[in-house]
């Protein structure tokens, strides 16, 4: 017998039952790799820590997306875009995330335009600015 959380609602489940773990979570290898990048070299991560982070991060995606979805619903739009995600972050109190993400979006759009131009010339393009953005974000020690 499965114990489905506090709520009896199955709205979140596509097939009325538990969503398969591989569909419900991000891959544990990728999550583990990202965790390792921020840890000192000799540190280790237990399996349960990785699985805990898997749950946590999937929940975070749902939380922010849900807020963005509500905005789209009120404005009668069907497509959630980058600005909606940034708005949702700010609304939920993740101001330190919203600001860099807006800058990311701005540069993303610049790169997209450049990329379309460069495609015509068949040249490569560097994503260094994105790295810089994340680097600054990490170093600033985002706090809520």
């Amino acid at each position: 017998m499965e114990d489905i959380g506090g709520s009896s609602s199955n709205d979140n489940n596509n097939n009325g039952g538990i969503i398969k773990e591989q569909d419900r979570l991000l891959p544990i290898a990728n999550v583990g790799r990202l965790m390792k990048r921020i840890l000192p070299q000799n540190a280790k991560i237990s399996k349960e820590a990785k699985e805990t982070m898997q749950e946590c991060v999937s929940e975070f995606i749902s939380f922010v997306t849900s807020e963005a979805s509500e905005k789209c619903r009120k404005e009668r739009r069907k497509t959630v875009n980058g600005d909606d995600i940034c708005w949702a972050l700010a609304t939920l109190g993740f101001d330190n995330y919203a600001e860099p993400m807006r800058r990311y979006l701005h540069r993303y759009r610049e790169v997209e335009v450049d990329h379309n131009k460069v495609n015509l010339q068949e040249k490569g393009n560097s994503p260094e600015e994105k790295d810089d953005e994340l680097f600054k974000l990490s170093n600033r020690g985002v706090g809520l």
Partner: peptide
């Protein structure tokens, strides 16, 4: 509902950072 490509990418960046933040 649909999700734009940039909407997915912003979330991708955001969640990657979240993992680093908590793990740190």
């Amino acid at each position: 509902a649909k999700i734009s490509k940039e909407g997915k990418q912003v979330m991708q960046e955001c969640v990657t950072e979240f993992i680093s933040f908590v793990t740190g």
